[in-house]
Design a protein around this nucleic acid. Structure first.
Length: 690
DNA sequence: GTAGGGTTAG
């Protein structure tokens, strides 16, 4: 055994000598000592006595505290012809902090023993004591023989846990450790959990596991696997499986359809839709929701209309949730309201999803009172319902009420989540509630157990920055435990615009552009700041920079719903059939506004427009002005003018709208990228704080 | 028994 005396040069410190706490030097690199000569000596042992000698040697020179080496010892003591599980357990118990590899080895040892159920106990201990999560090596070791009875029980539990994929997967792992052979029903639950966790690697492993264990791949299990592949982002794997399936049903087709649609491959999705033997409502819903969720609300509504015309299927709750969401995005309140009436006529009961969508739709379409009506009309409310209502109040600048609602939510014992806090902080920001914002932000972790993520920091920077507390905002950014995102710098930049801080703006802008070089919003904001302080040469420098780097300003657009039809206007748009009338109406408005002292604020107009175009300023009329003029032309006086804009409203359009609301005695509801502006009698609900 | 389509967000 001369090799046993080989000095252990490669060990950084001797763990077995003076160190009172040998655990501290456990090497985490499993293969660090893979070539140590002692390890081959282990393999040469032919009885327990020899093995014990090697063990002693390993302890003496410290090699034992290397997890990989210790595992070799466990393997030898448990799996060799002279195996002794008791001894293997002893060896294991000497390891101060066994790592995943070591645990796996012991589980494997028990799984191969006469009493495989023991491996389940070891597995439970591992879940309790091992800081690492079980991995794919944990399972193959422990699956030997099992009881079908228990397997199906666990299968059901897995299914019951469809809200908690994590636990379902853990159960599967636990089940394997208990030596229960999973059947196809179990695997459906496991795949469904994979799909929810978006774990492709594990999903692929489960696939091969199913094949290796000859679990019957029936229609349902195949469908579950299709779903796993599409959800985990591999539509290729799904397609391959789909083509191989001897039997397909409507679920298989819909799964493929949804897979393509979610990837934005709408043509492929449509081909699947048209090719399937029959389109039930789920298939329609898959198309509608894919469009709605990828910011294509018009396309979503077009499909909804097609569905109604075809009468091939009846809209259900899911259809209406997606369609309402499309209405929210567009500000299409007539259609949204129609859906609400339709639901009542159908006798549909409001579930949480529908309630949330209705509140969101009414809020985003500008009818906050109606949103509140829905909110108070339902008895039971979940965190989505509460959060949507808080968001609604927030975007309408009713921060105090949002906070009140947040407090009521706790009386109702509904636990707020991260989104609730985003909405709440948003409410504080729009209403300038600095103290409250600070308080809630600081309470998140200690009181509610919610760790602030970057979005919450962005809100907080926004709250502080808007209020002019730029130093405190910068301090917060510097102290952030996570890397500030573009939105954090964006919030700071926005604050610099309000408070005219050019130096800080330049800093924030450059940090933002480091993260998102093509963020045109950053250029526009900085340009606004330069323009406001009269630094025109810097404005043109910025313009050149944008041109050279090929960054284009996102064109502003506004939409307005009149008599059930959504009309869209782009900046300088003259494509509307009533364009001529709209422009002459605008002339008329401008003249009358000027007579009461309106002075167009050109700094917003000039900002990033090419020199030559500036001469044709009329071509660059902001879209909200066109939409307002159209609203005045085509809507009854009693009707408020509701406009949705894709960008933030500029100062000039803001004062323009205020004046119109007084001069023409019209209510104007303008939703911009960040919030609502509710103009009435020459005032705006944002109190000019936006 | 199990599988497809859904809600709040700087």
């Amino acid at each position: 055994m001369a090799t046993l005396n080989t000095p252990l040069i490669s060990l950084p410190r001797n763990p077995n000598s003076q160190d009172p706490n040998p655990t501290s030097i456990t090497v985490n690199n499993d293969r660090y000592f893979a070539n140590h000569p002692i390890l081959s000596a282990i393999e040469q042992c032919s009885d327990t006595k020899q093995l014990k000698q090697v063990h002693a040697q390993m302890l003496r020179i410290g090699l034992f505290f290397d997890p990989y080496s210790a595992s070799k010892l466990i393997t030898a003591s448990s799996l060799s012809p002279f195996s002794s599980l008791d001894y293997a357990q002893q060896v294991f118990d000497q390891i101060p902090h066994p790592n995943l590899y070591t645990w796996n080895t012991l589980i494997r040892a028990y799984a191969s023993s006469l009493d495989p159920n023991q491996s389940f106990l070891v597995f439970l201990k591992m879940l309790h004591r091992c800081p690492e999560f079980p991995n794919k090596f944990t399972f193959p070791f422990v699956i030997k023989a099992a009881s079908e009875l228990l397997a199906s029980r666990v299968g059901r539990v897995c299914h019951g846990m469809g809200g908690c994929p994590e636990e379902a997967l853990e159960l599967f792992r636990g089940m394997e450790a208990e030596n229960m052979k999973p059947n196809d029903v179990t695997m459906v639950g496991v795949l469904s959990a994979c799909a929810k966790k978006l774990d492709l690697e594990f999903g692929r492993w489960v696939h091969s596991y199913i094949e290796r264990n000859k679990i019957s791949l029936g229609l349902t299990l195949s469908n579950a696997m299709l779903d796993m592949y599409t959800k985990c982002g591999s539509v290729e794997d799904a397609k391959r499986l789909f083509d191989e399936m001897p039997e397909k049903d409507i679920v298989s087709w819909t799964t493929m359809l949804a897979g393509y649609a979610k990837l934005g491959e709408y043509d492929a999705a449509r081909r699947v839709f048209d090719a399937m033997p029959r389109q039930d409502i789920a298939a329609w819903n898959a198309l509608i929701s894919a469009y709605e969720q990828s910011g294509k609300p018009k396309e979503a509504l077009a499909i909804f209309h097609e569905l109604q015309l075809s009468q091939l299927a009846k809209p259900d709750e899911v259809t209406l949730v997606s369609t309402l969401s499309a209405c929210s995005q567009l500000g299409a309140m007539d259609l949204g309201g129609w859906i609400h009436v339709y639901m009542k006529k159908q006798g549909m009961k409001l579930n949480f999803h529908l309630t949330t969508s209705l509140i969101d739709m009414y809020s985003k379409c500008g009818n906050l009172e109606k949103a509140l009506e829905v909110f108070f009309s339902v008895q039971r409310k979940d965190v989505f319902v509460w959060s949507a209502m808080i968001a609604g109040l927030a975007m309408h600048g009713r921060g105090r009420e949002a906070i009140d609602l947040f407090l009521k939510m706790q009386e109702a014992k509904v636990k707020p989540n991260a989104v609730t806090f985003t909405n709440l902080l948003c409410a504080c920001s729009h209403t300038g509630l600095v103290e409250e914002g600070r308080l809630f932000f600081n309470q998140m972790k200690p009181v509610y157990g919610i760790v602030p993520v970057v979005k919450h920091y962005a809100c907080m920077v926004d709250i502080l920055g808007r209020a002019g507390l730029l130093e405190e905002a910068v301090e917060l950014i510097e102290k952030m435990p996570i890397a500030p995102s573009a939105s954090v710098w964006g919030a700071l930049l926005g604050a610099c615009r309000i408070h005219g801080n050019v130096d800080l703006a330049e800093h924030a802008c450059s940090r933002l552009l480091e993260l998102e070089p093509r963020n045109h919003g950053a250029y526009v904001l900085l340009s606004n700041i330069y323009a406001k302080s009269g630094k025109w040469e810097r404005v043109s420098g910025l313009r050149k920079l944008m041109r050279d780097s090929g960054v284009k300003k996102e064109p502003g657009g506004s939409s307005i719903e009149a008599n059930g039809i959504v009309h869209e206007f782009l900046v300088g748009d003259n494509s509307h059939p009533l364009s001529k009338k709209i422009y002459s109406k605008l002339d008329e408005i401008t003249t009358s506004l000027k007579s009461v002292g309106y002075v167009p604020d050109k700094s917003h107009l000039l900002q990033l427009v090419e020199e030559d175009d500036v001469k044709e300023q009329a071509l660059y009329l902001h879209s909200e002005k066109l939409a307002i003029a159209f609203g005045l032309l085509s809507m009854a006086h009693s009707q408020p003018i509701r406009i949705v804009k894709n960008l933030r409203v500029c100062g000039d359009c803001h004062s323009f709208a205020k004046l119109i609301s007084r001069l023409y005695d019209r209510e104007i509801l303008l939703r911009d990228r960040y919030r609502f502006h509710h103009f009435r009698g020459g005032q705006c609900t944002c109190m000019d704080y936006w």
